[in-house]
């Protein structure tokens, strides 16, 4: 690097599209990191002027305040339908993404996302899996790990009565309309960088009109897991990733 260029390269900083507001998340929550990552990716791809975000019910609702982007929130589980309306309103031109938690996407909104994919919408869904209902205080989610204690499975999730963790990124990748599906984490710098690449891929698939794209994030929820930030990080590495392997489950150039 030449001497005169020093000081001009951004090493660290808040993404331009992330507003400087006090953090409303619990200490150690990964939502803040993921919000920054999304802002960073949209900024780097230069698509902010055409991007519209759709949030849902749950802590994803809070993310709406941080993005310097057109945004709308929606009823619980319905954001893929709302995104469909927005995308078609402007005849397919805008880049539309939904940001959804696990209760929102994997429970109440499962039918909605499956059908949005199956209609062959070109939308990107960012799915934040923290294995419980964070906002409401830590109840069982479809993604809760076996044995994991939640306020509605106080003795731990027992598959006999509460079923099994659902693997959204793999499951949805089976649908024909999906162009890209990956699962990521932000618990290490390496995983953060992989997640950034995955998000770029996902948006690119939408821009290229290939099909639906999904990026699932394993997200620490110390607030409702009732763990410290570092214990929550440990859970991501030791419990979550073994159950929910990271990686790409689908990446196709063409569907039709």
């Amino acid at each position: 690097m030449k001497e005169e260029e020093r000081g001009k390269i951004k090493v660290y900083g808040r993404p331009r599209l992330k507003k400087a507001l006090p953090l409303m998340y619990c200490p150690g929550c990964h939502y803040g990191i993921i919000t920054s990552l999304i802002a960073e990716v949209i900024e780097e791809m230069g698509i902010e002027g055409d991007t519209i975000g759709v949030s849902s019910v749950g802590c994803t609702f809070i993310t709406t305040q941080y993005f310097d982007l057109d945004f709308i929130d929606s009823a619980h589980g319905r954001s893929p339908a709302v995104a469909t309306g927005i995308k078609h309103a402007h005849f397919g031109k805008p880049i539309v993404f939904t940001i959804q938690g696990d209760g929102d996407l994997a429970a109440i909104g499962m039918g909605c996302i499956i059908n949005a994919i199956n209609r062959f919408e070109k939308i990107t869904t960012i799915f934040l899996n923290n294995a419980n209902y964070g906002t409401t205080g830590g109840q069982l989610a479809p993604t809760t790990l076996l044995g994991q204690k939640t306020t509605t499975t106080p003795d731990g999730r027992d598959p006999k009565t509460a079923g099994f963790p659902i693997h959204i990124a793999e499951f949805l990748s089976n649908l024909k309309g999906v162009a890209y599906s990956a699962r990521c984490a932000v618990n290490t710098p390496a995983n953060y960088n992989r997640a950034k690449k995955a998000l770029k891929n996902a948006f690119q698939k939408q821009i290229d009109g290939v099909g639906y794209s999904i990026v699932e994030f394993l997200s620490a929820c110390p607030g409702s897991w009732k763990l410290t930030a570092s214990e929550a990080m440990k859970r991501i590495a030791e419990d979550m990733i073994p159950e929910y392997p990271l990686g790409e489950f689908k990446n196709v150039e063409r569907i039709i």
């Binding site: 929606s74 709302v82 469909t84 309306g85 995308k87 309103a89 402007h90 909605c112 059908n115």
Partner: peptide, 12 residues
């Protein structure tokens, strides 16, 4: 879903 699509399109 229909009404939520309308919600999105009207917002647009």
């Amino acid at each position: 879903a229909s009404i939520n699509m309308v919600y999105g399109a009207a917002a647009a």
